[in-house]
């Protein structure tokens, strides 16, 4: 039968780790005073794990814990790449020893980074080819350039919709809707020779025509600056 009132589950948290380079309590205290003085609120009740792997000789575990708590940190335990006997000792003294998953985390991060780079690279590659449409895009028509830029040699009528995962270029008037960076691409841009659009959208940020008054009826391009849509003069 399951325990109705409690449940244990593993979770990952970000904890501050205090790396000690000396076991001299006076020196540690002096540096802590300086550090905490910089941002007293920030450190208040912050859970801290103390890394002792750099310390040699006798370590005053109890004193270190007391010192940490004196500065209003919440002491969690000790950590570090240390011998098994020392870990055992720490536990016998009544402190937690927190195992780091440093190596595996580093590996995971590396893998994650790699895949991110790969995805980004593949996306970038796709975005460089163009889908070219010659002629008007009429009311009621929809054009989608999947993993491509969209080039329209003609105008996009009111009631028409042009969508691209990359950029949109309209060599004519843009009177309908233009949605660039449809799959999420914050660097996507929309260019047109005459801005009279019903709606423009980049990476999910959109503008209705009332927001485009600054460059209304003139050649312009729309882009994102700090996730805010911006229009700029084209010529």
């Amino acid at each position: 039968m399951a325990d109705a009132s409690i449940e244990f589950k593993g979770s990952s948290f970000t904890l501050s780790v205090l790396h000690l380079r000396t076991s001299k309590l006076a020196d540690i205290r002096a540096d802590l005073i300086k550090k905490v003085a910089q941002a007293p609120d920030f450190f208040y009740l912050v859970p801290v794990v103390v890394n002792i792997e750099k310390l040699v000789g006798g370590i005053e575990y109890q004193a270190i814990k007391a010192l940490i708590e004196e500065f209003n940190f919440t002491f969690v335990g000790f950590t570090g790449d240390i011998a098994t006997e020392q870990r055992k000792l720490i536990r016998e003294l009544g402190f937690s020893f927190v195992n780091t998953t440093k190596v595996s985390t580093a590996k995971q991060t590396a893998i994650a980074q790699e895949s991110v780079t790969k995805i980004a690279a593949s996306a970038e590659c796709h975005l460089y080819t163009d889908k070219v449409h010659r002629g008007q895009v009429r009311s009621g028509q929809q054009l989608y350039a999947k993993n491509q830029n969209l080039v329209v040699i003609g105008s996009v009528s009111a009631g028409a919709e042009v969508i691209a995962d990359g950029n949109i270029h309209v060599y004519g008037s843009l009177r309908g809707r233009a949605i660039a960076g449809a799959k999420g691409h914050h660097k996507a841009q929309i260019y047109c020779q005459n801005l009279e659009a019903e709606l423009v959208s980049i990476n999910g940020n959109y503008w209705l025509s009332e927001s485009m008054q600054q460059h209304w009826g003139s050649p312009a391009f729309i882009h994102l600056t700090d996730s805010e849509l911006t229009s700029s003069k084209l010529i």
């Binding site: 008007q136 009429r138 009311s139 009621g140 028509q141 009528s157 009111a158 009631g159 028409a160």
Partner: peptide, 9 residues
């Protein structure tokens, strides 16, 4: 004009 545009499509 809008309807004509649709028909042209």
């Amino acid at each position: 004009v809008r309807d004509s545009d649709r028909i042209l499509g």
